[in-house]
Design a protein around this nucleic acid. Structure first.
Length: 541
RNA sequence: GCGCCUGUAGCUUAGCGGAAGAGCAUCGGACUCCGGAUCCGAAAGCAGGGGUUCAAUUCCCCUCAGGCGCUCCA
């Protein structure tokens, strides 16, 4: 049980004993303002209504009753119950952390439930850009968080390796390829214009010479999408984004799953204007959708439904899709379709993230794949570095627009938040090294006199690290990776302040021992946090 | 036109029913010392208008502003 949970339990006992008629379970919040304690509860406001008593009076009663044990002090202020955790309890946290180290953030919140997390799934028709990067990093970290919280997570990339856009890709590449031999083929209207298309064409010429001239568009499309997928995988691995599987759209056709889907849906489908429609409007969708086009080719929607049915069939408790907000119109379409298939749409959680605006100073940078002129995720990684790129992409909640300013990220590189947090880790490491050099041995927490850690700043620091597991659990519950960077920045602030006001290493050996243990625990928490974020925790900088 | 998301300090943004928080930029300070990639301080904010509530930045409605989507594209 975490400290916060212990306090919550104690508060609940007190409330139950004093006010048995109260149905509300008391909530406790971490307190940001040190003047208001470590934790606070607004329970008195809820009780006031039921008991017809002023909040301040009730808060005072509760504060009085709750004090003692792990609660050092409780104050009633304007109806709030402000709580200070006892020094003994906070100090007892340190051996716990020392023992668990890398597992301090772990919980069994997920109870081993199987989750499938699908993300990125960018079409293999061009390199990844910063928008894909956001989805990639968000998904990767969400996966880490859910795993740490006791879910069994699989991470999947759905590859759209068939259909119109691959055909367009094939045409574009073949066109550029033939141009290398001075031949002309009409460039497709919506063709891909990027420099990378010409490079793929050259690659094909270098490897196959004129032999590819006779090959059809599909051949070029397949080849190009394979090459591009490889490049995407390289970019993902350079970003430390991990997947457990790549699922190919084409495999749905090969196994006959698309055909089977169509026959299973036939009872709900109807012909109109030469096409086959599904009556999704019957459910939450705003209108019906085409399954099979007039020319007999199935739509992307059909394959996507087949894919989702496939996912439902694989025995996951929960499916999570991470989509760019430009796909939000697609949510109800999929959910409605799933109802026809007897799949419960409630088990499918679709998280939408807002798009990223890439800027260089005040200048907007274009990100259109079709037009060709754009900065790729590779470019950003090269320019800003993996750690900073990931940190910036993770700092914002998913439904906020994200502005990524390359100039800022570079210019401020010595003072930006990533380094602030990494510096915390390096500084802790450095202190531990210095202690060793000075011949101050590191002794284990159970042998040290931790009660010497009684400075206000030490109290705040321990209270903050005690909240780390809570933070991870909340992030898992709400799918909010951005809590971690923010938490780490706050922790760094509290630590640097402590460092500046108190000497860790001094003549007082006993005190030095105790403080070194605290430093070691802070270091473990930071490392834990950074590792969830997929960002390195340097010993030196 | 309809739908979804977003308007918090000069800029980038946390908080999302209870007591407005950071970073950058600006200005002013700090350590003969364990890493100055640090610390302390100042100034500055909930787009506007109505509701609901003991309590609204947070929930509901309207207005205004921005983004995205409304394909037999994916």
């Amino acid at each position: 049980m975490t400290i916060k949970e212990e306090v919550e339990t104690r508060l609940a006992e007190v409330i139950k004993a004093r006010y048995p008629e109260n149905p509300i379970f008391p909530q406790i919040e971490p307190e940001k303002n040190p003047a208001y304690g470590d934790l606070s509860s607004n329970i008195a406001f809820g009780l006031a209504k039921i008991l017809n008593n002023p909040p301040q009076v009730l808060a005072a009663e509760i504060a009085e009753a709750i004090s003692g044990g792990i609660i050092e002090k409780a104050e009633a202020v304007r109806g709030f119950v402000n709580i200070w955790v006892s020094q003994e309890r906070l100090c007892a946290l340190l051996p716990e952390i020392e023992e668990n180290k890398d597992n301090f953030c772990r919980s069994n919140f997920g109870e081993g439930k199987k989750v499938l997390l699908e993300f990125v799934s960018a079409n293999p028709t061009g390199p990844l850009h910063i928008g894909h990067g956001r989805g990639a990093v968000y998904g990767d970290v969400l996966g880490n968080i859910l795993s740490a919280s006791g879910f069994l997570v699989e991470r999947e990339y759905y590859v759209n390796d068939t259909g119109n856009q691959i055909e367009t890709l094939g045409k574009s590449v073949k066109c550029r390829y033939l141009e290398l031999y001075g031949e002309r083929l009409e460039f497709p209207e919506n063709g891909y214009n990027g420099e990378y298309i010409a490079e793929i064409a050259k690659k094909i010429r270098d490897e196959e010479g004129e032999g590819a001239k006779e090959k059809d568009i599909a051949y070029f499309g397949r080849l190009a999408s394979e090459i591009l997928l490889c490049q995407i995988q390289k970019t993902l691995s350079d970003s430390s984004v991990n997947f457990s599987s790549f699922f190919y759209e084409s495999s749905l056709y090969e196994r006959g799953e698309v055909e089977r889907l169509l026959s299973d849906l036939s009872a709900f489908a109807y012909k109109k204007d030469g096409a086959l429609w599904l009556a999704t409007n019957k459910f939450s969708d705003e209108k019906d959708r085409v399954l099979v086009r007039e020319d007999n080719r199935p739509t992307y929607y059909v394959a996507d439904l087949a894919y989702h049915r496939n996912k439902f069939g694989r025995g996951y408790e929960r499916l999570i899709n991470l989509w760019g907000t430009d796909h939000h119109g697609y949510v109800e379409r999929i959910k409605s379709g799933l109802k026809f298939l007897g799949c419960d749409p409630e088990r499918l959680n679709i998280i939408l993230y807002q798009l990223v605006t890439l800027k260089r100073g005040k200048e907007l940078v274009s990100m259109s794949t079709r037009k060709g002129e754009f900065i790729t995720l590779d470019d950003v990684l090269r320019e800003v570095g993996k750690d900073a790129t990931r940190f910036f992409l993770l700092m914002r909640k998913s439904d906020a627009h994200l502005e990524f300013d390359l100039e800022l990220a570079k210019k401020e590189s010595s003072e930006n938040p990533v380094y602030y947090v990494q510096y915390l880790h390096a500084r802790c490491s450095s202190i531990l090294r210095e202690a060793e050099q000075r011949g101050i041995p590191f002794i284990s927490a159970d042998k040290a006199n931790l009660l010497l850690l009684k400075e206000l700043e030490e109290h705040r620091l321990m209270a903050k690290i005690s909240l780390f597991p809570e933070e991870i659990k909340e992030a898992a519950k709400l799918y909010q990776p951005h809590r971690i960077p923010l938490y780490l920045m706050e922790l760094a602030g509290i630590f640097h302040n402590y460092y500046h006001h108190h000497r860790i290493l001094s003549e007082d050996r006993e005190l030095s021992h105790a403080r070194l243990i605290l430093i070691n625990c802070v270091k473990a928490v930071v490392k834990n946090g950074l590792s969830l974020l997929g960002i390195s925790a340097p010993e030196k900088m």
